[in-house]
């Protein structure tokens, strides 16, 4: 054979959900062990996928191994069904598995997510698959796998507490706002993937099965339904989640995670639900935020004045302003979008 020779192209065909059966078995075995040892990272022989590492190859492999013909799949990125990577992954499974897909959280049997947990409470028959970039919660404190593996084996998590406490000493806050470490079922400290810590409480005692796939780092881990998941904290600095001062500008939802949208170069901005399905469903039910089209409007809505900066931070204990304010009315100066952090 020489480099000059080029012959016939091989016929290329792919299995259901892309992965071959042996690979699925290998991943399935890892999933079963992950469920049996909540929060422990099971090494698995992640395959090279037809999408880049870091773009959801772990989640995609877990989904491909779990997915069946009767499943209804939902894929979200940043809480939204229509972000480009979510669209690409959903398209991948439509193409390779031909499964039904949905954007409705309640209709889905399997939800693959990057960076969010849906606002709608999950049910017992649902599976939530997280895409994980760095599965090791101790990685930024100790880069060596050989070391962190020992620390987990010895249940030696002092390093993590020291790090969190150093934040408090330096900043007065735990400076971790996403990928906030949790302790699962009283044993393993686990990285919840880069979800905002706002979502951490949703993991605790969740009726759905939560599976985590890290393709590049070749790890799978799991939280079974109804499992205790505790965000690490201190007695004098209890874990708190972000709370937004204003409701969603489109659906008026409160107590949800909002995206900040910059409207102009004069400081105009608005806050809207990160979970697009939740937001759309509320709007369909008639809820209207200050920037939404009026219910009766069939187009030609008037653009309201961009909202000024929302309320700034309040000290804990202050009741955050969560009531719907008059449409477009100024709300006073402030720097942060969050009303407060509240203990979960």
């Amino acid at each position: 054979m020489t480099s000059q020779h080029t012959g016939e192209m091989p016929a290329i065909s792919y299995n259901f959900a892309y992965l071959d059966e042996q690979t699925k078995r290998m991943i399935r075995r890892a999933i079963l062990k992950a469920i049996a040892i909540p929060g422990y990272q099971v090494p698995f022989a992640a395959r090279e996928m037809p999408m880049p590492y870091g773009w959801g190859t772990g989640g995609v492999q877990v989904t491909a191994a779990v997915l069946g013909p009767d499943d209804v799949l939902k894929v979200i990125d940043q809480g939204a069904d229509d972000t480009t990577n979510a669209v690409a992954i959903r398209g991948f499974f439509e193409k390779t598995a031909g499964v039904a897909t949905t954007t409705a959280t309640t209709e889905a049997t399997l939800i693959q997510t990057r960076h969010r947990i849906p606002e709608t409470k999950l049910s017992e028959n649902q599976i939530l698959v997280y895409q994980v970039p760095i599965p090791e919660p101790l990685r930024f404190l100790e880069p060596r796998e050989t070391e962190t593996r020992q620390l987990h084996a010895l249940e030696e998590y002092g390093l993590m507490h020291v790090k969190l406490y150093e934040d408090i000493a330096r900043h007065g806050h735990i400076a971790t706002t996403y990928a906030y470490p949790v302790e699962v079922a009283g044993r393993y400290v686990m990285d919840p993937s880069p979800i905002p810590k706002f979502d951490n409480p949703k993991m605790d005692d969740c009726p759905a099965l939560q599976l985590f796939g890290a393709g590049r780092e070749k790890r799978i881990y799991a939280i079974p339904p109804y499992t205790t998941v505790r965000s690490l904290d201190f007695e004098d600095h209890p874990f708190k989640v972000q709370r937004f001062a204003k409701p969603c500008a489109l659906c008026a939802a409160t107590g949800v995670y909002l995206d900040e949208v910059i409207l102009d170069d004069r400081g105009g901005r608005m806050f809207v639900c990160s979970d697009t399905d939740y937001c759309n469903a509320r709007q369909a039910e008639g809820h209207r935020g200050e920037m939404a089209a009026p219910v009766s409007s069939s187009g030609g809505a008037v653009l309201p004045h961009p909202t000024p900066l929302p309320h700034g931070e309040r000290e804990q204990g202050d009741a955050p302003s969560l009531t719907l304010t008059a449409r477009g009315a100024p709300e006073g100066a402030g720097e942060g979008p969050f009303g407060a952090e509240i203990a979960s």
Binding site: H115, Y178, P196, S274, F338
Partner: peptide, 12 residues
């Protein structure tokens, strides 16, 4: 890829 959920948390 979008990271705006996490960035929002950091912004705050």
């Amino acid at each position: 890829l979008p990271h705006y959920v996490d960035f929002q948390a950091e912004l705050d």
